[in-house]
Design a binder for these strands. Structure first.
Length: 407
RNA sequence: GGGUCGAUGCCCGAGUGGUUAAUGGGGGCGGACUGUAAAUCCGCUGGCUACGCCUACGUUGGUUCAAAUCCAACUCGGCCCA
């Protein structure tokens, strides 16, 4: 992924790419063949990627598009990050999406900063000209009604209803609000506002990106290319990765947590994860599925937390299983300072975050899931008189959740 | 605006006056097995430091000894008509 003009090496373009459109691979026409366009261009292309500042943390699922964006950066192009502070108020109707809470400008700003912070390991923030950050309220907030009507008049209801999400909801007789129709148009207008040459997005963004092309054409611009990346499946291997489903790996999680989640990646999606989340050559991966899981976990954690932390997480993870808490160094700590004694164990399970509630804590003990300093606890009402007797001990829930109790 | 149907626990979905946090499925969590996987089997699946006390079937009132179940108004949705 070297140079701009004689960029012979464009292999990165296809890795983990789900679809590029328009897609005429044999064409010499740079308007319908992105590869051709990349070879011909005499200036950095403007590669747009929109982010939604409603969710403060991002996970590996989001990382795919950003990784692709990084590839463009490394190829000498300009990443144009659009922070959808304005569109966030409407909510992308892609997916189920319901009423969105209105975010205050401050909140949006803070989310955006958090977001950018998490992207540091992925994107090139330093090389001049490689990154441009824009807020779409800049051009959307000031649109007047006549302009909005112009936007609206470029599409028909039939076209809107062709969008997968809408079609489904319409068919299932679920409500579709009129303002939701505006979302694709606003996102499309973003492309006009920043003169995008390429827009990246998940496959679920195809419609919106296509609208961008239409609008650019309408406003006399050269239409952008759409480059779609797959939606990453969650660690359950079935549903898409999402925080609300709990099958995610967050970009700002600690090394051990990330490692623990990744090392149990289901076999069925392991190859997929390697392709989308790493740059490793499939040929060079270990044969043994268990070793592959470890390799994946190590590799991905290294990207975000550094190699050293990743290796340490791996070591800790292995030790934890073997010794049930022998090497406790990397285990998250929980301070008992706030706990009032005498205290029940199920209460500690709750406040330390191991369980969602005291009730769950009690149930887990009954179910034989809880160990204290390696010993299985069977008394659901086990209580402790003082904190000192617990200092340094590791509480374990199930196989992979640990907390070390400290002063 | 009119008519009509609907709103149940994370999700779907039973229940239509009376033990009981409320059948069942999914999902989730835990146990066995294993490769800390998949498949399979089993258990758990409102909250509270808890022999008891709270809060729950769209909202608010009402009828009743008793209501998720009956009544009224309201809110929100679907469909049909305009």
């Amino acid at each position: 992924m070297e140079c701009l003009r004689d960029g012979i090496n464009l292999n990165w373009l296809d890795r983990g790419t789900s679809e590029i459109f328009p897609d005429s691979r044999d064409s010499e026409n740079a308007d319908e063949n992105l590869l051709q366009r990349l070879k011909e261009t005499d200036r950095p292309l403007r590669v747009k990627l929109g982010i939604d500042p409603t969710a403060p943390d991002i996970h590996l699922g989001h990382s795919i598009a950003f990784r692709k964006l990084r590839s463009f950066q490394d190829g000498g192009h300009t990443a144009v990050l659009i922070i959808g502070d304005f569109t966030a108020q409407i909510g992308d109707p892609t997916g189920k999406s319901e009423v969105r809470s209105q975010l205050t400008p401050d909140k949006v700003k803070q989310n955006a900063e958090d977001y950018l912070e998490q992207l540091r390991p992925i994107l090139d923030f330093h090389t001049p000209g490689r990154l441009e950050i824009r807020y779409n309220s800049e051009w959307l907030a000031g649109l007047d009604l006549s302009k909005i009507l112009t936007l609206l008049s470029t599409m028909t209801v039939g076209q809107m209803l062709a969008k997968e999400g809408f079609a489904l909801r319409y068919q299932q007789e679920n409500p579709i609000y009129l303002h939701e129709f505006l979302y694709p148009l606003m996102q499309g207008y973003d492309s006009v506002a920043v003169s995008a040459d390429v827009e990246l997005g998940g496959t679920d963004q195809k419609f919106n990106i296509a609208v961008g092309r239409d609008l650019q054409r309408y406003f006399g611009q050269r239409p952008q290319f759409g480059l779609l990346v797959p939606i990453l499946l969650g660690t359950d291997g079935v549903q898409k990765m999402s925080k609300s489903l709990g099958n995610y790996v967050g970009l700002k999680e600690d090394a051990l947590t990330m490692y623990s989640k990744l090392e149990k990646t289901p076999d069925s999606i392991l190859d997929n994860y390697f392709e989308l989340l790493t740059d490793l050559n499939p040929e060079e991966l270990p044969e043994n599925p268990r070793e592959r899981q470890k390799k994946l976990a190590l590799e991905v954690v290294s990207q975000y937390r550094g190699k050293e932390a990743a290796l340490k997480a791996q070591e800790t993870a292995i030790n934890l299983v073997i010794t049930s808490g022998g090497d406790t160094e990397a285990v998250p700590e929980y301070s008992l300072a706030e706990v009032k004694f005498p205290a029940k164990l199920f209460y500690i399970l709750n406040v330390s975050g191991l369980c969602k509630s005291s009730g769950e804590g009690k149930r887990q003990i009954k179910g034989g899931a809880v160990r204290l300093a390696g010993e299985k606890v069977s008394d659901a009402d086990l209580s402790f008189e003082s904190a000192t007797e617990l200092y340094g001990k590791v509480v374990r829930l199930g196989k992979k959740k640990f907390v070390r109790l400290v002063e």
